[in-house]
Design a protein around this nucleic acid. Sequence first.
DNA 1: AAATTATCGCACTGATCATTGCGTTAGTGG
DNA 2: CCACTAACGCAATGATCAGTGCGATAATTT
Lengths: 188, 188
Amino acid sequence: MADSSTQVRPGGRSAKVRAAVHRAVAELLAEEDAETLTLPAVAARAGVHPTTLYRRWGSAAQLLNDVATSRFTGDLVVPDSGSLAGDLQRWLADVVTDVADPDTLALMRATIGSGPAGGCACVEDRHRQLGAIIRREQDRGGTALDVETAADFLLGPLYYRAIFTPEPASADWARTLVSTYLATLRTP
Amino acid sequence: MADSSTQVRPGGRSAKVRAAVHRAVAELLAEEDAETLTLPAVAARAGVHPTTLYRRWGSAAQLLNDVATSRFTGDLVVPDSGSLAGDLQRWLADVVTDVADPDTLALMRATIGSGPAGGCACVEDRHRQLGAIIRREQDRGGTALDVETAADFLLGPLYYRAIFTPEPASADWARTLVSTYLATLRTP
DNA sequence: AAATTATCGCACTGATCATTGCGTTAGTGG
DNA sequence: CCACTAACGCAATGATCAGTGCGATAATTT
């Protein structure tokens, strides 16, 4: 103990409590609205004492942020089909499948309402993945693309529909999105 | 009193209370996060007794929904510049200006978290306006366009950036959005 | 102007949330 | 195996929220 006074201890029990709490948040969010997501309610569902939640997370907003971060990072693998079109098609199809889950959507909506005003944990990893796909295309000798513009045309309509409109996003609609975006690249 | 037992009374006092409450909600949302938006807090800010809020709105979610509905309906006029491109350019610029306001954005984010899972009061009027623009173009003899697709390409990137990314939407970026969308119509 | 009643303020109560101090359990390193 | 301490459970407290009955105010009608 040369430097730090706080020594993290991620062994069995803490991890088990954390997993139970995360699962309880997901379940409660899927059942009822985000208004009733209080720390005592989560604790009762997870079989954990409320004091633990107050100490580890402090508030419902921070807990939601933690759940969303661990839920939306590292869940999708960046495909490598050999072409930009193939990579985008497969990746966006995976994103559509992910967003199509009502529980995932509920977590996203709740996170938007309680998270910080700029940036959201729901899409940070998506932007990284899109950047990786574009960088790979550039390494193959393809044209250098702007990540922001690609996100505008691919993630924009997808998340807009998921959050604001009741109609779900289908897989072939996502394919149309990709081909339209690629068409705009050829005709500036 | 032939039919109804409840008789609405929108005269002076009720309207004044309603306006004060709406203003208090907007102020509190602009200052702090949506977590602390409780009915007693709104009542204290508005100078109204909390009982009134419990009776008229019932919960913070319903109050938020009411505020958002009256805030996002009828605030923009549908332009009539003579051409589809001009109408879309001017209208989307107005939408950008509207979303650029931090207070408006805070109200949108809070409404997403507390509103019903399908559809949001923030965009319902936007869809109606976009439908009116497209219908007018069709009356002029132009091509019949799909409202959903137009919303995907215009409102999608705009609201996606506003909610998920910290970077603001500029006016000329909105112009790029419109011209790109119009370009995709000519090259299917 | 008088009667009617929707709406609001006030006081009060029960329920739930947020927080703290203390003892216990169980990972972690020697 | 033993000492150490991070992490948890428990009990108790103050604060705030949610809800109710009743009288007062003011908008609306006759």
